[in-house]
Design a protein around this nucleic acid. Structure first.
Lengths: 253, 253
DNA sequence: CGTTAGGTTGACTTGATTCAACAACAGTGG
DNA sequence: CCACTGTTGTTGAATCAAGTCAACCTAACG
């Protein structure tokens, strides 16, 4: 136990699955300066157009990315869990091109932009692990394009429920008995590109057909295989098992 | 003129706008080993599940990413232009999670995976430039989620036409008089998540309303501002002006 | 010069939206 | 303690955007 806090533990553990870090790298992560902040549900963490002065790490709670059309329709783009930096883009690109909001009450660590930039400059391995993170984010975006573009509401909902189940499970936030889905039906609609009224009907039908069991916002999946099939869900795109060899090792593999 | 070929010129130029490269970096890019290949329209460049042995650089022509649902519906995820590596993911993640096909006849350079991995390992600046590329790809994916999720077919089509116009223009493949859109109506439908029949009707209406003028697949935009407005298009997400300072400079900025 | 891929249009159907009403529930303040 | 208020969830009826099916047209090409 060499570090002073557990704020970055989840992030370090995640990065370890991407790239074997040196002790120096781990220490550099743990030594990042930060400021803790608690953010209420729906409060903005990043706003479109911002030139952020810090990167935000989710320590506890969930957050989501969204974009609003000129007509005022909101589209949710992704959901993020503890250990995720939600605006690395902000440290590397010029301006935020979308918004990030807290989904549940969040505890976040604000890390100054310069500290992130310096960390990336000084450690190729951490930069590499972060890069892989953005590649996986990209992969999830691609699957969401398919979900809103080519699946009907019923299949898309099943797919979304499968994705949440697997991701929350993988990070220890869900048992196979089910999980707490902390989204309103309006938010679910914004994630799927449909109206909240239709979300309601789709959930009702899934419940009626025995694909899910709802208790408030807690979702149980009695038959995973059935849900998986209706949603056309294949978890490859989540790259949950992602382990990359060191470049030098990979070159010899 | 120190290099032996112009294969990597576009890529070098693109990376220069992301990160000021050293002469060594430029040379390392130009010295990459490669094999040229010509690929006919619709032929696969990458297949889902592949563990690719090389990365593919588009030298000439256009390519697109796509994914097919279990029901057999195809969703196009992005379109790529000369200078783009279309499967860097393949060198960094375990398996390809989607397909890449040639849109037009393509000339591509196949670069061995180990050469890419070694390049990334040896040059932090090139890795950084590539990372920024994947961040921009992510930004474009996000906008596509909005496009298929929250815009009706008419607006989505205008938005897509605006995106192509700006990207092709930025890479010198379109004048402001218009551009060649080398996609069938079926492919346009697959990009927007609608049927080819509906694409046809939407294009007919846009033409009738004077938003576009079609001559075969050549598209002229008589009134850019009108098209931009109907599509709700804001080019920020393309990050066309992306210029990032060196980390050390950025830290002092 | 027949074959094929892509484009076009009409008639009909359907999945999802809209609008509107109401129920359940939590938080707030008198 | 209950009335008031706002948010979320629920349902029915009417409407609409997009899909389906099917016919036909055109241009490219071996």
């Amino acid at each position: 136990m060499t570090s002073t806090s557990q704020i970055f533990d989840r992030t370090v553990r995640k990065f370890e699955t991407r790239e074997r870090l040196d002790p120096d790298d781990r220490q550099a992560l743990h030594d990042l300066p930060y400021q803790l902040r608690t953010i209420d549900p729906n409060r903005y963490i990043v706003r479109e157009g911002d030139r952020p002065t810090h990167s935000t790490l989710i320590v506890d709670g969930l957050a989501f990315r969204q974009k609003v059309t000129v007509e005022g329709a909101r589209q949710i783009l992704s959901v993020h869990i503890p250990g995720d930096f939600v605006d690395l883009e902000g440290s590397l690109l010029q301006n935020a091109d979308h918004n990030v909001q807290a989904l549940t009450r969040c505890q976040v660590a604000l890390v100054p932009r310069e500290a992130i930039v310096e960390l990336i400059r000084s450690s190729g391995k951490i930069a590499h692990a972060m890069w892989i993170d953005t590649l996986i984010d990209g992969s999830i975006y691609r699957e969401w394009i398919v979900n809103v573009g080519r699946r009907d509401a019923r299949a898309a909902m099943c797919h979304l429920l499968c994705e949440f189940s697997r991701r929350l499970e993988a990070s220890g936030m869900a048992s196979n008995g089910g999980y707490e889905l902390p989204m309103s039906q309006e938010q679910l609609g914004d994630a799927l590109g449909i109206t909240p009224v239709h979300v309601n009907r789709v959930l009702r039908d899934l419940d009626r057909d025995g694909l899910i069991v709802r208790e408030k916002r807690f979702v149980r999946v009695p038959n995973w295989e059935k849900l998986r099939k209706v949603g056309g869900f294949n978890e490859n795109y989540l790259h949950l098992d992602q382990v990359v060899l060191h470049p030098t090792q990979a070159a010899h593999a």
